[in-house]
Design a binder for these strands. Structure first.
Length: 419
RNA sequence: GGAGAGGUGGCCGAGUUGGCUGAAGGCGUGCGCCUGCUAAGCGUAUGUAGGUCAAAAGCCUACCGAGGGUUCGAAUCCCUCCCUCUCCGCCA
């Protein structure tokens, strides 16, 4: 959510941002509502002040055993007015609030402006594409040769896009999660956290998934709960509606959760095997930082995510997203794309974003600065990493001529190869 | 799921015959004074948000779990919901 005062003072800038993000939102309505709100607030305050004052007088009269009925009669009308204005005011506030929730975050000035992904900016790459003296297979074939996955049975028990990992496949999946969590804790100083996989509406709104992405998520009607699409949601909202002491910042947490995404409308679009699934595992890094530091830390987090790919010896490239590719809440995002030799494509395995104070304002996450003022923190998060495409790259990169897979050294301590 | 108790400021804790209570008192914290140091002591300050203002100060308004109601006026009365604790039932 953007600051109303900021919108008021930067209408052009915000409109441009909406346009660059390929979003649709009407600032005119918001400004009109804001105007209306302030007028109503003013009237309300005036009448309330009068009511408070006269109520004192009434109390005084009654204390002195004098007649107050005239004043009481007078105030009946005032009370009516107050009630009416209050109703109008709540109505306007509600409309304003919900309109505001549809305004996207403003991209950082350094973000390339562009109308589609072709405007994304290549930043750097690490390693080289693996070469083979045979034709490399795709992950599904490798998985089937080694009994690592059972997609049909996943479809049977739930539906398409719900993978079943079997035997060594399941062990490999588990080892990846374990390795990544421990790596971030030990090498990067993150605090490990385990959070609920189901959250309420307020939490889903706090990080910006609701109200806009309602149809992309799994909903539990009975309690109005939602299955999380990323650990970012529960972890970021941990400190919702709190004022953190300055010395608690920066906070850096890492957690593993499954992620649930309906992926509505993406059928047939690169959905083969593990490429795009409805449930997958992800290790997520989340930081709460002082506004002055957030862009330094964004770079640091990209490095943190890269470190995992380096440790696994997987070739990847770093991409800076253009405005159109930025998510609703993000001000700046880097994607990490890993090379999958079998598929012959780069696959997105991590997205690292700075949300500045956008999520903090929605969720009410603040801190007290050195000057004694209460301010919003900046929140950032990044995958470190999502497992399915990491697994694809792993299988395809480390496949052998005989059809087996060589487990990279880094993962060996985390997996029992004797079974 | 059933029965009972309760939700007040950073924390503890008064206030429930409705009326100078944004809220006593205590703790904590900031600043100042005092004393070799520390401790103690003394003084003083210490919520958030909205509005007004160029800004600050000041002033006004809201907020005692959330939302509604009664009333001239509600932390205090009524209703609904949420949460916490204790006991019972059920279950990993």
């Amino acid at each position: 959510m953007l600051d109303l005062k900021f919108i008021r003072a930067n209408v052009e800038l915000v409109n441009q941002a909406i346009c660059n993000k390929n979003e649709k939102a009407d600032l005119g309505i918001i400004l009109a509502l804001d105007d209306k709100r302030r007028k109503l607030q003013f009237d309300f305050d005036q009448l309330k002040a009068k009511q408070n004052q006269v109520s004192q007088e009434i109390a005084q009269l009654k204390k002195n055993k004098q007649d107050a009925s005239e004043l009481i009669n007078q105030m009946g009308a005032v009370a009516e007015q107050i009630k009416q204005i209050n109703t109008d005011l709540s109505e306007v506030e509600k409309e304003l609030e919900s309109a505001l929730l549809f305004i996207p975050n403003v991209p950082h000035a350094s973000v390339p402006v562009g109308k589609d992904e072709s405007f994304n900016r290549y930043v750097r790459e690490w390693g080289t594409k693996a070469e083979f003296d045979f034709t490399p297979l795709e992950h599904l074939d490798i998985a089937s040769q080694n009994n690592l996955l059972d997609m049909p049975r996943g479809t049977k028990v739930t539906g398409s896009g719900f993978p079943v990992y079997t035997g060594m496949g399941a062990a490999l999946e588990r080892s990846l999660i374990n390795f990544m969590l421990t790596f971030h804790v030990q090498k990067h100083g993150y605090e490990e956290i385990a959070v609920p996989f189901i959250v309420n509406r307020k939490t889903m709104t706090g990080t910006g998934q609701l109200p806009k992405l309602e149809n992309d998520m799994y909903h539990i009607e009975e309690e109005d709960f939602w299955l999380i699409p990323t650990a970012e949601v529960p972890i970021t909202n941990i400190y919702a509606d709190e004022i953190l002491p300055l010395n608690k910042l920066p906070i850096k947490m890492v957690g593993y959760t499954p992620c649930f995404r309906r992926e509505a409308g993406s059928y047939g679009k690169e959905t083969k095997g593990l490429q795009r699934v409805h449930q997958f595992n992800k290790v997520e890094m989340v930081r709460f930082v002082h506004p002055d530091d957030s862009y330094t830390i964004l770079e640091e987090m990209v490095n943190n995510a890269e470190a995992i790919l380096k440790a696994l010896g997987l070739h990847y490239r770093v991409i800076e997203l253009c405005t159109a590719d930025l998510s609703f809440a993000s001000a700046k995002t880097y994607d990490l794309e890993v090379w999958a030799p079998g598929a012959g494509r780069y696959l997105e395995v991590s997205s690292v974003s700075n949300f500045e104070d956008f999520q903090a304002r929605r969720a009410g996450i603040r801190f007290r600065d050195n000057d004694g003022k209460v301010k919003f923190v900046h929140t950032l998060n990044g995958s470190g990493l999502a497992t399915p495409r990491t697994m694809i790259a792993l299988l395809e990169t480390y496949q052998q001529a005989d059809g087996s897979i060589r487990i990279p050294d880094t993962l060996r301590p985390w997996i029992d190869l004797t079974i």
